[in-house]
Amino acid sequence: MNAVITTRELRKEFTVRVKTGRFSRARRTVTAVDGVDLTIEAGEMVGYIGPNGAGKSTTLKMLTGILNPTSGHVRVCGLEPVPQRLRLTRNLGVVFGQRSALWWDLPLRESFRLLRHVFDVPRADHAARLAQCRDLLDLDGFLDTPVRQLSLGQRMRGELTAALLHGPRVLFLDEPTIGLDVVSKQAVRGFLSDLGAAGDTTLVLTTHDLADIERLCPRLIVIDHGHVVHDGSVERLHHRYGSHRQVVIDLEADWDPGHAPEGVTAKVDPDDARRVRFHLTPGGPSAGELVARLALRAPLRDMSIVEPDIEDVVARLYQAAPADSAG
């Protein structure tokens, strides 16, 4: 066991004043994070997802020492984030997609130089990491451009570099692809994927773009109304919510129910009697077995495999009542 992040019963409440009449205001308590237990091991890549207002950013702010938890236990790199912020932040890289950690009026290169002083990074280490990021994120075209003149995609590549120059053990990314164009999204995902594959950096990423997660994160934590409603692999999520890969087969002739292999149910396409769909369930036959067995009984014309749509699954998850252990 080598947990880099642990939380137990982590809670954060905000007191907000709401207008109840022309002159009256009432205090109301909003529970943004409501008893979250997390254990994240060194080198993991974790997607932390949930709808707007679920409590993702608030969790990240408690893990990075920005916000004091209302109650509960939290340790990151063995440290208590708020009281030991000065020591902890040397081990963390943090990127807020909607905020900037760069100097607006200075060339990107200058921001990097200042961060070397802020984080006390030895010159050689800094130069080596910068060279690597320049290469992987293709920064050379705009290193001398003032940050305010960068496109969003260029700026985000700069933010990622800025977060990594001190060699953090844990990288927190809050909506890193928000607002980016498709090409920049791909660049950011590709970079993070390589970083995660190298295995030295623990990566926690919040997003509501599920394509980020499918590409990057073997582990998925879903939060809703401050509660964790799922923690596990993407496959487990599909399994739990009954979404399966489908094999779609086009036949030379109309489907005959007698041809179905045992253990699977076929659904005939309502518009085309020569098209059938099979749901692949864990424990049932694999796609290959299924097709092989079918081919023995009926002539096939074409086949395709349809991946379950994670967006649908998560949408269903959000609508579901607070989590039970149905999986």
């Binding site: 702010k61 990075t64 020492g65 920005i66 912020r85 000065l86 020591r87 932040t89 040397r90 963390l92 943090v94 807020f96 909607q98 905020r99 900037s100 950690a101 100097w103 802020v118 984080f119 006390d120």
Partner: peptide, 22 residues
């Protein structure tokens, strides 16, 4: 509001002198 304070908090330096300096 602009998040500058958060940006200062994620660095291993005191917040107030950073804010004043930047």
């Amino acid at each position: 509001r602009t998040g500058l304070l958060d940006a200062m908090l994620i660095r291993p330096r005191r917040v107030l002198p950073q804010l004043l300096a930047v």
